[in-house]
Write a protein that binds this DNA or RNA. Sequence first.
DNA 1: GGAGACGGCGCC
DNA 2: AAAGGGCGCCGTCTCC
Length: 569
Amino acid sequence: MQIYKTIPPSLTKEEVCAIDTELYGLPRHQLHRPNQGHFASMQVCFDGKSVYVTQNETDVPKFMKAISKATHLFHNASFDIRHLRRWCSYPDKKDMFDTLILERILWGGYFDSFGLKDLARRYLDILVSKAEREEFATQETMTPEMLTYAATDALLTWQIFQKQKTFMRPEDLHIWNNLDKPALYAILDFKGMPMDKEKWIKLAQDNKQKAEEIQASLSFNLNSPKQVLEALHKMGIKKIESTEAKTLAQFSQYPLVSNILLYRTLNKRASTYGLDFAERYIEANNKVYSDYDVTMASTGRMSSSDPNSQNLPSEKSYRECFIAESGHEIVVLDYSAQEPRITAYESGDSTLLEALQNKKVDVHTAVTRDIYDDQTIKKSDPRRHFGKAMNLGLTYGLTATGLRRKLYEEDGIEMPYEQAEELVSKYFRKFSKVKYWIDQIRKFGERNGYVQTHSGRRTWLNRYNYHWLNNACNSPIQGGAADVTKLALARFRSDCQKANLEFPVIAVVHDEFVLHVPKELLETYTKIAETAMVEEAEKLYTGVPFEVEIKHGRSWACKVEEEETLTQL
DNA sequence: GGAGACGGCGCC
DNA sequence: AAAGGGCGCCGTCTCC
């Protein structure tokens, strides 16, 4: 490897250039924050041999200008682009590849490590150390070893891409170009979530105090499953081996057990969603900036971290902490029954399709009517819980036992095993093409070792997992839903650009978009977002109607717009 | 004393 | 034998 400390020569459109950036002093949980850390170095490699490096941030625009025509490569583009934009403009570039995301597109479910060093091992048979990387967090100058490390990263990215692209099918390229890359650019434009910090802290303190009171009354550590189990055994509950909530629920008549369950809830609130959260993530402007990963999950779903904004408590009091700034509103748009619609497309089941087309009742009620062959069943009918559980669970490989548990946990319904079994078979008799599709896709997975979504996003199946074939039917559905969400996200952003409007997304939770919009633009944004969501979904899954539920208000706990419309009528 | 596994649990 | 899937984060515990 030859290192040059000069501006690289001007590259042509045909050349391919790997880019890597290092920063000093990035806090561990804020690697994605452009208001943290500062420039250490930028290095580029366009021939697989030589690396051009600068440690001067004023060189960044000069580097960028020289390589602007070439195809760009990054390993984790979201990190580099986000930070590079501090020192130069980096508009959406079409000729750009991310070896990290490409690797997930190619090998999701097959491998479970996707770091640069993992790829170097797999593609190049090179063992590299990442020890130097840690030093950037605490150092302010670069040792020769750190410089070599940084240069090597760019070199490896270039070399890996040469090998990686030989594995790419047209479908993989399609997923990158039309789904994941546009979604990546959209994610980089997400705005911070404005928060009511005081309210959050009040909740945290209340929960912490209540949790501590329970802990103080007991002589063992409630946070230790080991000690909890021991205490329960001593008390006479001998036959349990696990202390997770669903097991303990069976013994809730014991005051100790119900106290443990209460503690767990309070402590979850006080720890994961507590004072540390506020301290670490709520910034001086009272906003929270999550990091998003476009293709973390093996199914193609996005993930969120630092903090994870996809698993915040759905409880009203917590959602009320995410508030609109003055003159603004929060808008929440979510796909109704997104996954059952994809199941309907994949299976071509006309009964399910008709249930989804029924505008008069919701899909869970419609499916319940079909299961029981009774078209008079209303939304309030207790049997709707069964239809709902089937709708949501069957593509995960739901069994009679799983159905019973689901109903008990979520709706407090106790159902005899035989009845659950009968319900499952009734469902499959009625929706016979769904059953047929499940059987076929399982066979496909067994034969090929992978399955894919309608867009062609592939997930490899792990044969060493005893229920590995459940993923055969789950991945095309869950992954298909992720495909829809990404298409809609990119379309929404592009339509905002066309209308010369700022991109107002502050969070995406799988099938839900959360926007923060000026009040006077509420209708404009809502219309653009809804259209993008519905049209992109219906374009991909032709023939299936998609619906989006829209809410808006002062906070993420906003009331349902439908209710307003109903009262108006 | 730091890393990683594990149990547990928040969300879709 | 087997209790659908996908994530990220917390605290404990073990190991080095």
